[in-house]
Amino acid sequence: MSITYPLALPSTRKWRSSNWASQDRTAEVASPFTGDGQAIVWPYQRWTPTLTLVSMKRADAQEWAAWLRSLRGRSGTFLLGDPARPAPLGAAAFNPGTPLVKGAGQSGGSLLIDGAPASVAAWLKRGDLIQLGAGATARLHEISEVVNTSGSGEAALSLWPALRESPADNSAIVLTNPVGVFNRTSDVVEVPTDTAGFYDLAFDCVDTLRG
């Protein structure tokens, strides 16, 4: 059977640590005579996590090593969310409603939605995560500003990273266990083992920007 990407993570996962890093690309141009300058902000925004698994014995380590190799270096993709942020800290954790994208053709760092519960303060908090799309189109976004819903259950979400594609009207917004599509940053799979037979595995990845 051929492998179909994106893959799910192995079920035997316990994280020792996760460094949920991110990157923006900017530049500063300054006059050599006055020092006056300006910042240039490029559209590049990307998650760059490093994940480290707890030490494990052969049965679990073998599964993980084979899974990493099945990605064929940087070519294969998988679904990943921040293990430290599986659910919102805002009121959406217990009162999510049925949030949907409100209107097609949206772009940039803001997204209009409806279907949220009416008149809820701090429905989403700064740093909460959401998912747009599913499967190979899943994108992981962070909320940049506190979200309060209107009396009709509408809201404007400030997002990082900005939208890379325009989500379809009425497409669902995932609030619990949100994920995006990621790929590894290396072609090498290392499987270090100590004399007690414990394996220590870690890997770096980025969210996939391929078409």
Rank of each mutant, 00 (worst) to 15 (best):
P32H: 09
L201P: 00
D36P: 01
P192D: 09
S150Q: 12
C205D: 00
T4R: 08
G180A: 12
T98Q: 11
A91L: 10
L124N: 00
S171C: 09
P96L: 05
D169M: 10
S144I: 08
S55C: 06
D114W: 14
L112T: 11
P86S: 12
E63V: 15
D169R: 11
P167Y: 06
L51P: 00
L53F: 11
A136W: 07
D60M: 12
L79T: 07
R210N: 07
R13Q: 03
L112W: 13
D169F: 10
R139T: 07
D200A: 15
F182S: 00
T195A: 14
E63C: 05
R58D: 15
V29P: 00
T50I: 09
S11H: 10
G35R: 09
N177W: 07
P99E: 00
R210C: 05
A8L: 10
N95F: 05
D169S: 15
L157H: 01
V147K: 00
Q45G: 12
L129F: 05
T52I: 04
V41D: 11
W123A: 02
L111K: 02
A84N: 09
L112Q: 13
L111R: 01
G127Y: 02
G35E: 03
H141E: 04
T208R: 09
P161V: 06
A122Y: 08
Q62H: 15
R210S: 15
S171I: 03
G133A: 06
P178N: 05
V120P: 00
S107F: 12
W160E: 01
W64G: 03
K125Q: 12
V54M: 09
D114P: 00
D24A: 07
T34G: 11
A155M: 05
P192Y: 10
A138S: 04
L157C: 08
G37D: 07
S55P: 10
L89M: 14
A87D: 07
M56L: 08
P192G: 08
P83S: 14
P43S: 05
D82P: 01
Q23C: 06
V181R: 01
D82F: 09
S171D: 11
C205R: 01
A121R: 14
R16D: 08
A134E: 11
S17I: 02
S166L: 08
R164N: 08
A61N: 09
I173R: 02
A118Q: 15
S150A: 14
G35Q: 06
V146D: 04
R210E: 14
L68I: 07
G103N: 12
D187Q: 14
L124I: 01
T77F: 03
M56H: 03
L111S: 01
P96K: 02
